[in-house]
Design a protein around this nucleic acid. Structure first.
Lengths: 237, 237
DNA sequence: AAGATAAATGACGGATCGTCATTTTTGACG
DNA sequence: CGTCAAAAATGACGATCCGTCATTTATCTT
């Protein structure tokens, strides 16, 4: 296979994913159909099915890509020079910043049955990024445990699972439109962050949110880790 | 309309909901199609569409029914004679017991777009039970606030939202099969309960889980509130 | 240039959706 | 009971979407 040809195929794949992602962000996952992708593309159905074995496969691929995009932000946040609890918050802020730069509603959880019918290629990529993401957060929790910031015997995976669940669940509920009062995206993100901090307080992770100046920590994180993005969003300078 | 006729229509509706619920619990919501419901019923498509305007409408109706079924258990738990924190736990146990008696995987959150296309009848019924359920929990939180068990100024709705999010999110993640280790339903329920208790500790809701004998509280709740169900499940006597 | 391999095509059968003109049932009333 | 209007039930229909596969086209090898 000539490189020319290879890159053409890769471009096409990227284009499909871009279109699929656009449809999902505009109208939700249920609106993603192969026919609609085809309508916005200049090659045939058979070629589309060479890249993605079925509708679910494409859905998983979009999710995997989204995970990949988030992961780099999580990792940057985890590099913040501060105590583990600040680093954990910084990693979370990474996702929020990314979301504000490119606001695509996104569920990080995929149904079992959807994953099952997807191709091995995309399913494993999705699982890979999922594991990597969990690992970033769990790594920070382990650091906190090593320093004695968390009670000995705390299961690091349980902390991550709790935060992850809370985050996904809040997203779900927000998207269902069933919240008593309608919140702006910004208010909702603040609420979610506060709930996560409350949960971490519940684990006894020091310094507790009452012992930490969050406004200042947030300022430092933005300045030191996400300066360009923060400026672009008008959060800095 | 003669009563004979009316009850026949009501029976039919119940039958449809039962079949739909069965399909969903066996194969997931994606497997619910009008055609498959029709295949298990002895009347025609047009009649089915007299009861439910579209697939999504039926989905919302099933969810509303499930909410209704849970609500009575939540309410029973809330009547437990104990401190608010115990009552909150008792309400949650109600849902678990019901789930074990009739194990149907269930998401309490419905997509915005699904609710939007459903008929007003079922959508409003769903919203009604949703609000009622939230109100049960939020009522207990208010009682705790009134007694000074929670820090003054705590927003009761935020507590409920946090618990609800955590609960739904954990369910999602469990069903995605992405947990590192595979958990039994029982282990998962225990894990979820513990995460919720941790979150409530984070809110500073006294008595904290460390200050309370949970095994004993659980025993009392089963004995006093859910004696029949607990015995049937072999949790008592 | 010819043959072999890989990629692309789109027509097709099948499932499902939701509609609606038509038929059947029901109930009210003389 | 017979008539007739309203209500309920029917199922054929057009439309959308799925995923396949025999065929055509492009690319590579020698």
């Amino acid at each position: 296979m000539t490189p020319r040809k290879q890159s053409q195929i890769a471009e096409r794949e990227a284009a499909i994913l871009e279109i699929a992602s656009d449809i999902i962000s505009r109208e939700g996952a249920h609106a993603l159909t192969m026919e609609r992708v085809l309508a916005r593309v200049d090659f045939s159905k058979g070629t589309l099915y060479n890249h993605f074995t079925c509708r679910e496969d494409l859905l998983v691929a979009v999710h995997a890509q989204c995970f990949e995009a988030h992961l780099s932000y999580f990792e940057r946040g985890a590099l913040f020079r501060g105590c583990p609890r600040e680093r954990f918050a910084a990693a979370g802020m990474g996702a929020q910043i990314m979301h504000e730069l490119d606001p695509r509603p996104f569920q990080f959880s995929l149904n079992d049955t959807i994953l099952a019918v997807a191709s091995e290629r995309w399913r494993e990529l999705f699982r890979h990024y999922h594991r990597e993401t969990i690992a970033v957060f769990t790594g920070i929790v382990r650091d906190a445990l090593a320093r004695g910031d968390l009670p000995a015997g705390t299961d690091p995976e349980r902390v991550t699972l709790g935060v992850w669940s809370l985050s996904c669940g809040a997203e779900d509920i927000h998207e269902s439109g069933l919240l008593p009062q309608r919140l702006t995206a910004e208010d909702f993100n603040r609420l979610r962050s506060q709930l996560i901090e409350t949960l971490l307080d519940g684990f006894g992770w020091h310094p507790l949110s009452s012992e930490l100046d969050y406004a200042q920590a947030r300022e430092r994180i933005l300045r030191e880790i996400f300066p360009d993005e923060a400026r672009k969003l008008g959060l800095l300078r």
